[in-house]
Amino acid sequence: MWSNTHFPAAMRSLNPSTREKAIEIANFLLANGEVDKAQAVAISIAEARRLARQARMVNEPAPAYSYTRRL
């Protein structure tokens, strides 16, 4: 099992909140025994990044677009 102080090198470049989610996902996958360590790391990184992008999109205000019609 991994923690915030002991995690795979592949997670080193993730920001702390995304890394924390990736660790949580990887530990869950390993606990269920459905995948090996390499697959758990790859899946957890991809899913944590997807969740982080999704959270940013929800929290960001809608961009202000101006539309000028050209004749």
Rank of each mutant, 00 (worst) to 15 (best):
E24H: 04
I45R: 02
E34G: 13
E47I: 01
M11W: 03
I23M: 05
V41K: 03
E47M: 01
A38G: 04
N27K: 01
M57L: 14
N27C: 06
A46R: 12
V58S: 11
R19L: 11
D36S: 09
A42H: 00
I43M: 02
T5F: 15
N32I: 12
P16K: 08
P16M: 07
A31C: 05
S13N: 15
L14S: 09
N4D: 14
Q54W: 00
R19C: 10
Q39M: 10
L14R: 07
L30P: 05
R50S: 13
F28R: 09
A46N: 12
M57G: 05
K21V: 09
S3H: 12
A42C: 01
A42P: 00
A9D: 15
G33H: 05
I23L: 05
Q54M: 10
E20V: 04
E47D: 07
N4Y: 06
H6M: 14
T18K: 12
A10W: 02
L71A: 12
W2K: 12
Y67S: 10
G33E: 04
L14K: 06
G33R: 05
S17F: 08
P63D: 06
M1R: 08
V58C: 08
A26G: 00
N59R: 14
I45S: 02
L29E: 02
T18Q: 13
N4E: 13
G33L: 04
I45A: 03
P61L: 11
A40Q: 01
S17M: 12
I23S: 05
A26C: 02
A62D: 12
G33M: 05
Y65N: 13
P63C: 05
L51P: 00
A40M: 03
A10Q: 12
A62V: 13
L71M: 06
R50P: 06
S44M: 02
S3D: 15
F28N: 07
M11I: 07
P16F: 03
L29G: 02
N4W: 04
N4K: 11
V41C: 09
N4C: 09
E24T: 08
L29T: 02
Y67R: 12
E47L: 03
R53D: 13
R70L: 15
E34D: 14
